[in-house]
Write a protein that binds this DNA or RNA. Structure first.
Lengths: 140, 140
DNA sequence: TATTGTTATACTCTATAACTATA
DNA sequence: TATAGTTATAGAGTATAACAATA
């Protein structure tokens, strides 16, 4: 019982499996993926508000509040009042957080990096392009 | 504050966002992604045991037990004793389940299909290749 | 004794709704 | 009145550990 090809289903399944597999891995300090991703955003873009982070990650504000608080408790980010808008909060990487990002990135034996390193340049190119396309899909 | 390119981080973020975005969509009967994925496997490969499904989906057996039970309650799959091995269970699509798969697939306005349809053939090719690579990553 | 599946339990992530504070 | 963030609550998904049944 084999049905016709289903690129959509194949892609859905592949994304789901990959996301689950990646989630099962822990970077440096045992940080879960959503938390580490926030650190990556802050490292890439500088200080951001929880609202901006929620938009970037495409999650609802309460989810980001929780993630940010978790990181703050670990001392990896700091929350500060917004200079001009009392409603907003500014989240920034601490020294510890910056070190955590860089240390994790430096460790080339990080699981996903290891997987990519084992691939051919052409395959890495495909995945890099796919990353952009997936990002676009996620923003639709 | 913009750091050096980080293909690994970009890919991780993209996969996470895409998985979350896809999960937020509901196919035909409002079926969640993990459940629909099991239907796709059964439709593709025919009847399977919970253990086989767990291996295919890279989840632990208890997770699959739960998913299969949910589908059985909905009448989309049926559980039957294995003909020769009393320990095993055979899960198969019911008529309703088959109809559900085909109806969902036929609806081209399914969210992800719509996204793919809006892309260029080249972009679809990249994603199709990426799906294979992601599958390989997930199995590592 | 090893394997298949299930039950029990707990944790993480996410969402919606309601609330507070500020603009 | 609108916006940013938080708190409260709930639900989905997954995992590990322990158990039952069968090989």
């Amino acid at each position: 019982m084999t049905s016709a090809p289903d690129p959509t289903g194949d892609l859905r399944i592949a994304i789901g499996q990959a996301a689950r597999r990646i989630r099962a891995e822990r970077g440096g300090a045992g940080l879960a993926d959503p938390q580490y991703t926030v650190l990556l955003w802050l490292n890439k873009s500088g200080p951001l508000t929880p609202g901006q982070l929620a938009d970037l990650e495409r999650v609802q504000p309460p989810s980001m509040t929780r993630t940010v608080n978790c990181l703050a408790e670990l001392g990896l980010v700091a929350k500060a009042p917004h200079p001009t808008d009392g409603r907003q909060v500014v989240v920034s990487l601490t020294e510890t957080g910056t070190a955590e990002v860089e240390e994790t990135r430096r460790r080339r034996n990080t699981w996903l990096s290891g997987q990519l390193d084992a691939m051919t340049p052409e395959e890495r190119r495909v995945l890099a392009e796919a990353a952009e396309l997936l990002r676009r899909i996620a923003q639709a």
